[in-house]
């Protein structure tokens, strides 16, 4: 399996599970296309097994086209891997507290 097939699986692109029916996939795709046309920030990336990947309108159209064809849909279902969980935000380093504990001067960087 090559990398684009892994990362550009139609279900990942549309953000829907493989269990969705055709109409739900169409609805999700049309909504995504509309948001992309508006330049909404939430549509800049989509989840994939190897982390977030850039998303474009062409990706969505290709995904919709793939899911309309029963053969390519089966292939997409077979190739589906759950997307990687969103990375947890690292807690900010409390430099001030560390500096106070070490009794040193406050560092220049935050």
């Amino acid at each position: 399996m090559n990398a684009p097939r892994l990362t550009k699986n139609p279900f990942h692109v549309l953000g829907v599970p493989p269990s969705v029916d055709r109409m739900e996939a169409e609805r999700a795709g049309q909504k995504l296309l509309a948001l992309i046309d508006l330049g909404h920030a939430s549509t800049a990336e989509h989840a994939s097994p190897i982390g977030p990947r850039p998303l474009s309108g062409d990706d969505v159209r290709l995904a919709l086209s793939a899911l309309r064809d029963p053969t390519t849909r089966v292939m997409a279902e077979a190739a589906y891997l759950p997307p990687a969980p969103a990375p947890k935000a690292e807690p900010p380093i409390e430099w001030a507290a560390i500096a106070a504990r070490l009794s040193r001067r406050r560092p220049f960087f935050p």
Binding site: M23, E26, R27, Q30, K31, L33, A34, L35, D37, L38
Partner: peptide
């Protein structure tokens, strides 16, 4: 408002998106 919606659809519950 800048609207995005399908002109013709077979879906009974399509989305309308706008800014």
């Amino acid at each position: 408002v800048w609207l995005q919606h399908p002109a013709v659809t077979a879906d009974l519950a399509p989305f309308v998106v706008g800014r």
